[in-house]
Design a protein around this nucleic acid. Structure first.
Length: 488
RNA sequence: GCGGAAGUAGCUCAAUUGGUAGAGCGAUAGCCUUCCAAGCUAUAGGUUGCGGGUUCGAGACCCGUCUUCCGCUCCA
């Protein structure tokens, strides 16, 4: 990261805090690592992003419906999905090389060495010890195996190891009021499983015919090994996922289609196409037969914002197996029962928020030969802006505030508006620029005579004289969701 | 978790060798002002991240601890 982009990112972060978009969680207690709170404007922007996604997915597609599944799910869900076994690995660090390893893999390598040297007995004994330790979650036992078999770090060649620690992806908690009969449940690490376990409910109650999709917005929780870069990787985060169920054999066509549809959605809110790219997965996850990320060029490089995965019938088949319920669809066109294939679109809402913030933020130099001048501006698409308009009496005397309040009270029935009468008019414009308000309405003495006001535009800083009776119509035209949805 | 750097007002930063914690911006109240910031007056805001130690005296020195940032390890 260059000094310049580094500074830019730091400025975005401090701007976000300064103006009430994002705060570190529990800040008065020194914060909580990798957890953030959304402030008064951040919450508005986030709600607008959710609305944009929901409208684009659910409202615009007659074959996509939205649900809201619980964060707690039956523990077997996570056995079926592969999360319980797949993501709790024993980790160990070498203090000299500073490298981290998976303890079980180090021991596996030693077993392979024994076998290569013809020490079959030793290999079998170690394998048995390893399995016993893993099954018993015996972390100290794993360490003593590493020590007694003289396993050294491949980099440093030393045996200077830390203790073995367990890495758990999922957060667990207890369900049940009394400690004795409480059951361990997990906070979901992805929202997708809430959709899969409801496949039959939605398909039957909604009389859905394949192909169809189920959308959901919700929180998910992961213990990351490292969680960094502001709201890029958080332990508690929000996903917007849509699982699209298709006939087996057609999945790659749908995969292509959703890949294109989703990029178009990102570009519609004003990102330059040079900032986005596809990144195809070479190494696929256990359940996928194709996967691509939509990446955005953050100040710290291209990073994943959204993933489109062809998940095959892995998830539904797993749930069919673990639940014993038949999860199939009868396709009248081909008179066949099958487990549908799934195309997933999965976007991190917090990452999306960050792309929008980075994309919108600009520190603009307005200097002329006579005077140095600058402003901070957030160029949000008007439909996404937390505050749509500010109503400003030119002075706070002579009845201008009353007239302004009158206009404000009418406009607030339609959207978020702010009133401000403090400081010079220029300063007030700049304050609104800093929070991304697209329009300022200024009431002056002429307004009292002919009922017109100045409408000032954020991006161009240009002003026009309009009748107050036209305000609602003019602003609605510019902030309307239609302007975005029609582009999709 | 390891290594490096840093934590002083909401923000950016001062504070001589260890000797009374300050400024600018911002905020609030008022003045001025008929359309693009940095004009005037006043006010608020700090147990210098936290805990211990050395000292007559610690923002500064020592130990511990927490948090943040950068790099590494992991990542559906």
């Amino acid at each position: 990261m260059s000094k310049q982009t580094d500074d830019f990112f730091k400025n975005v972060i401090s701007h976000a805090k300064e103006y009430g978009f994002v705060f570190p969680s529990s800040e008065i207690y020194d914060g909580l690592s990798a957890v953030y709170d959304y402030g008064q404007l951040g919450a508005e922007l986030k709600n607008n992003l959710k609305a944009y996604w929901w409208k684009a997915m659910v409202q615009l597609h007659e074959n996509i419906v939205g649900i809201d599944a619980a964060i707690f799910m039956h523990p077997t869900t996570w056995k079926a999905s592969g999360h319980v076994d797949g993501f709790n690995d024993p980790m160990i660090d070498n203090k000299d090389s500073k490298k981290r390893y998976r303890a079980d893999q180090l021991i596996e390598e030693r077993i392979a060495t024994y076998e290569a040297d013809g020490k079959i007995d030793q290999a079998e004994q170690l394998q048995a010890d390893l399995d016993a330790a893993l099954n018993a979650d015996d972390l100290a036992g794993l360490k003593s195996l590493i020590e007694t078999h003289n396993i050294v770090c491949p980099i440093s060649g030393t045996k200077n190891w830390t203790d073995v620690r367990q890495f758990n992806l999922m957060f667990s908690t207890q369900m049940g009021a009394s400690a004795e009969d409480a059951e361990t449940v997990y906070l979901r690490p992805e929202t997708a499983q809430g959709i899969f376990v409801n496949f039959l409910n939605v398909q039957k109650s909604g009389r859905m015919k394949i192909p169809f999709g189920i959308a959901q917005i919700g929180k998910a929780f992961r213990n990351e090994v490292i969680a960094r870069q502001f709201i890029m990787r958080m332990r508690e985060f929000e996903q917007m996922e849509m699982q699209f169920f298709v006939r087996p054999g057609t999945e790659l066509e749908w995969y292509q289609q959703w890949k294109e549809t989703r990029l178009k959605w990102h570009l519609a809110i004003g990102g330059s196409s040079a900032k986005y790219r596809y990144h195809d997965h070479v190494k696929l996850a256990h359940y996928a037969n194709a996967a691509v990320d939509i990446e955005y060029e953050f100040p710290f490089g291209f990073k994943e914002v959204e993933g489109i995965h062809s998940r095959t019938d892995f998830d539904l088949s797993q749930h069919q197996k673990y639940s014993g319920k038949k999860i199939q669809y009868f396709d009248p066109e081909i008179s066949q029962n099958y487990v549908p294939y799934v195309i997933e679109t999965s976007i991190g809402l917090d990452r999306l928020f960050l792309t929008v913030l980075c994309n919108a933020f600009e520190e603009q130099d307005l200097s002329t030969a006579e005077k140095q001048d600058s402003r901070s501006v957030l160029r949000f698409h008007p439909a996404l802006a937390p505050v749509k308009a500010a109503v400003l009496p030119l002075t706070k005397k002579d009845g201008l505030p009353d007239k302004a309040r009158e206009i404000l009270n009418r406009l607030k029935l339609d959207y978020n508006v702010q009133y401000d009468e403090k400081d010079s008019i220029g300063k007030r414009y700049r304050r609104q620029d800093a929070i991304g308000t697209p329009f300022c309405i200024t009431i002056d003495y002429q307004s009292l005579e002919d009922d017109t006001v100045t409408l000032r535009h954020r991006d161009s800083m240009e002003q026009e004289r309009v009748a107050t009776s036209d305000l609602e119509k003019i602003i609605r035209n510019l902030v309307d969701w239609k302007n975005l949805l029609v582009k999709l």
